[in-house]
Nucleic acid binder design. Structure first.
Lengths: 111, 111
DNA sequence: TTGTCAGTTGCACACTTTATCAAGTCTTGA
DNA sequence: TCAAGACTTGATAAAGTGTGCAACTGACAA
C-alpha cells in the first residue's frame, strides 16, 4: 500500500473529528435521511451541512442518491455504529475519571 | 453536561486524527514506553513528539510518570485498543470496496 | 415559463494545527 | 559542580479547516 496504515487511520479519525459529522453519522446510523431532514435536526447552515456531507462522501463513509426532488444519504459502512459506541464507552470512562478527580479536590469529596 | 456528547466525541476523534498520535497509541497499547523508545520507533523530532504526547495527555488518553532519568508513558484507557481495531476493520472494508471500484474501471475487471 | 424548494459549489476571512528551532528543566554520573 | 542525556516549552511561519454569503443547478408544480 502506498499510504501507511497508520496514516490512513489518522485520516479516517480526522474525518470523524467534527461535531456536525458525528451528528450526521449518528442520525444516518438510525435510518437514511434526506438532506432537509438532517437540516431539521442539526443546527447548521445548509451550505455547511453540504460541505460536511461532502467530506463524509469523499471518505466513502456515506453515499447519496437523488430520489425525486430530494437527496437521500445512507451510511455505507454499518460498522460505523460500533465505532461510535466504542467511542462513547471510552469517553464515559474518561469523563467518569475526571469526575472522580474533581470530587477529590472538592470539599465534598466522597471517599 | 455542559458540552454535548457529540461535541465531546468529535474532540475525541480529533485527538486521534494525527499519524504520530496513532503510532504512539499503537505502541503504547503493546506496552509502556519511555519517550526515547518512542523516538526510536517513530520518525519525528523530539519536540514534535513531546507536543503530540501533550495532546494525548490533555485528553487523558495517556499518562506519564518520571522514572529516574526517563519519562514513561502508558495508555490510561485500555479500550483504546478496541477502537483502533474497529477503525482498522472499517478501513479495510472501505479500501476493499475502493479496490473493487477501481478494478471495475480497469480492463482486467474480475466480474 | 416561472417560481420555489432542495442542494451544492465557490470564495474570502478567521481560526487552528503542525513542524521546526532555540532555550530551558530535571536527573544522573564523572 | 559540571556535562550530558532525556524531555518539555515557547515562538513562529506555513499549511489546513471551518463558516457564512452569494450564486448556481435540478426537480416539480402552477
Amino acid at each position: 500500500m502506498s499510504v501507511p496504515l497508520y496514516q490512513a487511520k489518522a485520516e479516517f479519525f480526522k474525518t470523524l473529528g467534527h461535531p456536525a459529522r458525528i451528528r450526521i453519522l449518528e442520525l444516518l446510523s438510525e435510518r437514511d435521511h434526506a438532506v432537509h431532514e438532517l437540516l431539521d435536526r442539526i443546527d447548521i447552515e445548509p451550505s455547511s451541512l453540504s460541505q460536511q456531507l461532502a467530506v463524509l462522501r469523499r471518505t466513502s463513509l456515506v453515499t447519496s442518491a437523488r430520489v425525486g426532488g430530494e437527496v437521500v444519504y445512507s451510511v455505507s459502512v454499518p460498522e460505523v455504529r460500533d465505532l461510535l459506541l466504542a467511542a462513547r464507552r471510552i469517553l464515559s470512562g474518561i469523563i467518569a475519571v475526571q469526575g472522580e478527580l474533581e470530587s477529590e479536590l472538592s470539599p465534598t469529596a466522597t471517599s
